[in-house]
Design a protein around this nucleic acid. Structure first.
Lengths: 341, 341
DNA sequence: TGCATCAATGACAGCGCTGTCATATGGCGT
DNA sequence: ACGCCATATGACAGCGCTGTCATTGATGCA
């Protein structure tokens, strides 16, 4: 009469031994059929496959991983899922590793390096074949764990710094500089900046690259800046540009920390009747699909996000096959000339 | 001299036995400290914790899961990551289960029910504590696997149908009907529809609800429809509305399959000089943050996406604790009166 | 004082699978 | 006829951990 719950376990999951018995072969032979390894005669394979279907066998990767000293999981630590950037990366990665029967185990840190450390520890407990993180800046303990794990480590998005193992990304400093040069070439000189919360280290590098290039190429400094203490969002961008123009109405261009923020800026301009680009130029960063569908497509610096994920997956597979992929892969970026500058 | 790669394993990972030896206690005692179970004296705990740090111990969840017949993983099968809807759900879920030391193992199906079946099989191999899917429609084999697994199953987003176990969502038929009633109340009568690819069953239910309510309440049928054979996107929405207005210029309102599509529609109207809402009303679905930052905020039917994830996490935790959560949780929806109707 | 109770710790087996090595079988060249 | 190799299969141990039950003192209470 017990109404006891056994949340963790199937009532009585079939094991490989059940399959083997049903097929009249040994466990190891059944195992080989399941994994597609080793020489198996067609007749045996058919028997085992029938047995698998008959008993409803689902392999137990916990046992398999333990026995073979490692899982087919790829740990992925992402700062956020709230704009499309990291989901795009994740999709690219998923697509590239699906063929190798690898799966992603995802953790999200909200741009918190302590949360990243904890996530790495938790993911390492699954003995992943590889671990994918974002950025090159981590807590020292994180780097130690990564190095000690012996797993393949891939750091995404950024290549300016010292990778633990492998890196796939781009130079955000250069991307910021490209935005600066673009605006200077278009004759802008009173350039402002709208940014978002401090956790995003790559956005900070872009801003630094922007300021450095303005200084170097035209001896300019930012004519105004407004940074919201919050994650990036369209609403935040809209409010931030409004606030910035309030105190610095003379600006003739604004660079945004990313496209979400820039989109908000574009919406503010539409609503407030600010003429874009004649009165004010807007430049974003990322190259989201959405920003290209605007009545005036956003001028932005496009990063190949899906591509970064895909290449990371390929680099990872190469390493797992025992090859030696390049330590750093620079996927670069494009300045997309839209209608807002 | 061998340059052999051991991709899967740390050079020599410390085990619980190493910790126990270093701490001068038995393995099981070390295990209890690691897991925070059972009565442990403060002195012993301190010794073991020091040993853990000294040897750099990282627990092996593969072994732990095998020994205790179940993992602390929650398998999550999502149709897509390409608009913010499912990332939002996932964030909510992650937040709600983090406290219980559960982790999500994510698979993406691209709205393909066969891919969903394969994903379920793959996730089940990890003996997850629970499995979270989207929608109530699955292949028969999928349902069988789910039922046979004995795990807690939660189906998200939809509540119209027969849940395998637990469901958290809303009535999309009712949401579609709400959009219809909203437009009728605003005096619209020549109502069109812009939709996206066939895999999205919930979008189809919304359309059905829309059409049924138009018929029932005003004896109207759709005055035009354009459905793109592609995933939803802002660009697709923009192109689709342009195409629809080409063949049905007399429309005075358009309902979109979701906010991404509607945003594209809004952009088309801005670009083509279609006066919204005087000449044409636009209604979306989802209530994305972004759509609310438009110069004219989008009128839409908001679903509590993060909330659905959060509640799913709570329902799940309740079940794992042995409680009996409600079989179906209706989170409802809100009609958000924006400026586009 | 004696006995139940509780806190703290340990011994042992086994979770389900796979790596390693061994074995059986048949074809083939000489 | 003989060894040799490739193919097909199996026996066995053990991966690292935890559930179960046992053990040891210390404590409470009549």
């Amino acid at each position: 009469m017990s109404n006891e719950h056994r949340p963790h376990r199937a009532v009585s999951a079939a094991t490989l031994a059940d399959v083997a018995r049903a097929a009249g072969v040994s466990e190891i032979t059944a195992s080989r059929v399941v994994r597609g390894r080793g020489p198996i005669s067609a007749a045996t394979r058919a028997k085992v496959e029938a047995a698998i279907a008959a008993v409803g066998y689902v392999p137990n990767r916990l046992a398999g991983g333990l026995a073979s000293a490692g899982s087919n999981l790829v740990g992925v630590v992402l700062p956020s899922l709230s704009n499309s950037v990291f989901p795009d990366v994740l999709s690219g990665l998923n697509g590239a590793i699906a063929g190798e029967r690898l799966r992603t185990l995802v953790a999200v840190t909200d741009y918190d390096l302590d949360a990243e450390r904890d996530a790495v520890a938790a993911l390492l407990a699954w003995r992943p074949a590889a671990l994918v993180l974002v950025g090159l800046e981590h807590r020292p303990e994180t780097r130690e764990m990564l190095a000690a794990s012996g797993a393949t480590i891939i750091e995404l998005m950024d290549i300016e710094g010292d990778p633990v193992d492998l890196a796939v990304g781009l130079s955000h400093t250069a991307a910021g500089a490209a935005a600066a040069r673009r605006l200077l070439a278009r004759g802008r000189s009173r350039i402002g900046y709208v940014g978002h919360g401090a956790g995003d280290l790559r956005a900070a590098k872009r801003r630094a690259g922007l300021e450095a290039a303005l200084k170097r190429d035209a001896n300019l400094t930012l004519a105004g800046a407004h940074v919201v203490d919050a994650p990036s969002s369209v609403g935040a961008g809209r409010a931030a540009l409004a606030a910035l123009l309030e105190v610095a109405p003379e600006l003739d261009a604004v660079v945004f920390s990313n496209d979400d923020m820039a989109l908000g800026g574009a919406f503010h301009c539409m609503a407030a009747g600010v003429d874009v680009p004649d009165r004010l130029a807007l430049v974003g960063f990322n190259g989201l699909e959405l920003a290209n569908a605007l009545p005036k497509p956003l001028t932005t610096v496009r990063t190949a996000r899906g591509e970064i994920g895909r290449i990371a997956g390929e680099v990872l597979c190469a390493r797992l096959r025992g090859e030696t992929p390049p330590k750093v892969t620079d996927v670069g970026f494009d300045v997309v000339a839209g209608g807002t500058d």
